[in-house]
Design a protein around this nucleic acid. Structure first.
Lengths: 189, 189
DNA sequence: CCCATGTGAGACATTCCTGTCTCACACTGG
DNA sequence: CCAGTGTGAGACAGGAATGTCTCACATGGG
């Protein structure tokens, strides 16, 4: 076989569609998820044993994409501000997925994948800490809060784009500029 | 009767407890909600006909609290930056509720209350627009995005507090400072 | 004191979702 | 052309949640 049949379902695309729907309607049924993904409930069930398995797969995909973005952004290189810019740019394709997972905490019933998020959180917090140490970032905003705020802004950005309130092309700029520079106008740095 | 019996359930408190639980676990059952609110499922059902009615009531409460905060913050008075500070301070008690409602879009199946949010959105966007016009806020970040970002940061702040990653007393400071000033350190304004 | 009100606990039927199965069909590759 | 593979549609039982009901009990007011 080697290559998957063209007829076969694009597993990652199904997961993205699922995340897109579940972000708007967390109580969506498996049938609704299947419809949103353009497949039948039977097929959805062939790929994911149940709702738990689906969410688990969503988490795994989200973690994988986040870590890929982290690597691609080279957070340890150069100025912290530039690293943040690279990070947001790299993470943009996964924004919808992150927006879902950020609100889908499920009380951490399955602790398995939690260490994945812990690693990502740690990497982000370390980036902000490095920026503080180098004097780029202010010290009254804790790295933990900046990390949390970044998640929140990514979610808000993804939502604003899907709602049509922000142009897709402005996604990175809006998030980075607000996170780094804030809303207040300045003369010159 | 005049005053409600001491035995009676505190309706708003039930709604807050419900929001608190549903924020963490959107698929919680009515029984779980009742337990979280410290009442029986029967009593919960006496006050809210069903899940839909519960969410509707949550929205109504959220809208009411937001509008109360908007009025208390006097958004039209003085500098826009000061108005933002007042707003976040006033809205803090409702942050948990807002965090839930912001992620609970339910595809707007019930469009009734939507105008309530539209009014609030308009008031916030107007505040940011006023700040841009007065030269306080930068013009490359649209009022619509600043509004969305404020929601996102309130949600992130509420979550960070409940998770213990940010001190409750720092809530307003963290949000306002990041929203207005951003993460980058400045010499002096 | 006793009645009215509101609650908790539990039973109950109903509805909905889930998970599994079968079968027919479409496409692919040999 | 012909198997092999994967899908869609539908049926089905099992289970979970919902919505409604009854009854006993606690409290507070008249």
């Amino acid at each position: 076989m080697g290559y998957r049949s063209l007829m076969a379902v694009d597993r990652d695309q199904v997961l993205r569609d699922a995340a897109s729907l579940l972000t708007r309607k967390a109580t969506a049924t498996m049938d609704e998820v299947a419809r949103a993904a353009g497949i039948s409930r039977a097929t959805l069930h062939r790929h994911f044993a149940g709702r738990d398995a689906l969410v688990l797969a969503l988490e795994a995909l989200g973690i994988a994409e986040c870590e890929a973005a982290l690597n691609a952004a080279r957070l340890d290189d150069g100025a912290a501000t530039d690293a943040v810019r690279r990070l947001v740019r790299e993470i943009e394709p996964a924004a919808g997925l992150i927006a879902f997972l950020y609100t889908e905490n499920q009380l951490f019933e399955g602790e398995e994948q939690n260490e994945g998020w812990a690693r990502i959180d740690a990497a982000l917090a370390e980036l902000f800490r490095r920026g503080q140490e180098s004097g780029e970032f202010r010290i009254d905003l804790t790295p933990a809060w900046l990390t949390e705020a970044l998640y929140g802004l990514i979610g808000a950005g993804a939502w604003a784009v899907t709602e049509g309130r922000v142009a897709r092309n402005d996604f990175t700029h809006m998030i980075v500029e607000l996170l780094l520079g804030g809303a207040v106008r300045r003369e010159e740095p």
